[in-house]
Design a protein around this nucleic acid. Structure first.
Lengths: 227, 227
DNA sequence: GAGTACGAAATCGTATACGAACCCTAGGGG
DNA sequence: CCCCTAGGGTTCGTATACGATTTCGTACTC
């Protein structure tokens, strides 16, 4: 008897994944009000597992929850954005540094290939694809990180950014070109067996530069659009 | 009207804090089986809020949870310990570096005073007090960190270590003396307005040294080495 | 005596129900 | 005209109940 339900896991788990997916892929954008009863009905479960799922998402920072008021998809307060990027730069830098000694030639080749695709995207101006490839590139860099805690923190940061992407993943052409060059620099560093500190610093600076570019472009004004 | 009930919070919040406190203070030691119904009865609430509390603690790494089996206080697998310490060294290093420019003379004085108390503890051999003072010292160093995400990660790491303390917070006299000296070094660095990178590295190395001392003493052989 | 099959007890997972807190609108008084 | 208050509706928070799953003890077979 193929009980796929067992593999899929509990309804709480299903709910968690379903809501998370909707947040990350943008179905529920920041500010969206998450009503327990409504989600429960949509998913065909009761409110108890949904509530649990929402609280887990809250712990990951994807959702804000207020007692007796309810949950909303976490927003894009510029300060919060700064904090998220700063945290990500730290944990991703560490993850990349820890991962780099474990990267084989095939990993480096794959990263380089992705980066070349990104360069191509610059020619045809394909920001959507560029963004996805950028994530792929960084994934290759840090996925070998042997410390699962750090890896988890990196993934949370990326999910958080993805949930905000409509407003914050704006394509900054000048920065994109720089970014691709820095990727090559990073790969060369790793290939040459640079020490962990150097790689960590380079990876961190790479992200900080992206943050700076974003701040410079958006000015003090964060893009909060609610059509 | 004073609305203090928000802080006291829901029963879910109460349960969370109660169970967390028992884990951190050692009432529930690693491996302890957390039976929902029993905890619910102890706290005078029903199982629903307790379940939610347990899942939150799971997200923080204090509890392991297995579907249809139950929850236990997270254990002390040496590999896991290495990961936790490594992660803590990274986030605490960053927190200290971000915090240091915001530390005033009074903060430094307080840290120094705590460190002197620690030195005194070395004379009378008071490991329990030494451990608590050590936490106080580091708290002063990173509590000014303006990034709440990083601060939260640091607190989680400390809680996790506290929950394991019976086995892992072993007092290593030689290391303790070194530790106190390093604390003074750190304070001097901060006082002299050293740049963030320097402070971060020093703070991180300080923790790494503690980890190394623990590994050397316990003879645990983790699956990988940190350079 | 060892291994297996079965059954009872314990515990988890979720649905349902109901009370409590909050928000929003309407109406009266200053 | 504005502020304050009252009421209803919506949504959350938790208790209770019951089905589902695992675990463990016991008896039976080889």
């Amino acid at each position: 008897m193929a009980r796929t339900e067992t593999a899929a896991g509990s309804k709480s788990q299903q709910s968690y994944e379903a809501v998370k997916a909707r947040i990350v892929d943008g179905t529920y954008s920041p500010g969206y009000r998450l009503v327990l009863a409504k989600i429960a009905e949509d998913l065909g479960v009761s409110v108890v597992p949904v509530r649990e799922a929402i609280r887990r998402l809250e712990a990951e920072g994807l959702v804000t929850f207020e007692r007796n008021v309810g949950a909303t998809v976490a927003g894009i307060d510029p300060t919060e954005y700064l904090y998220t990027m700063q945290t990500l730069s730290i944990v991703e830098g560490a993850a990349t540094a820890l991962s780099s000694p474990l990267m084989g030639p095939s990993d480096i080749a794959r990263a380089r290939s992705v980066n070349n695709e990104m360069r191509a995207c610059l020619e045809h101006f394909d920001p959507v694809r560029f963004t996805r490839l950028n994530q792929d590139f960084h994934s290759v860099l840090f996925e070998n990180c042997p410390n699962p805690h750090i890896l988890d923190l990196v993934h949370r940061g990326w999910n958080r950014l993805a949930s905000l992407r409509s407003s914050t993943f704006r394509f900054v052409p000048g920065r994109a070109r720089e970014s691709v060059e820095e990727h090559d620099d990073l790969l060369r560093l790793i290939e040459s067996g640079a020490d962990a500190d150097t790689i960590e610093r380079a990876a961190r600076l790479h992200r900080s530069a992206t943050l700076d570019a974003y701040l410079a472009q958006s000015g003090a004004r964060p893009s909060e659009e609610t059509p």
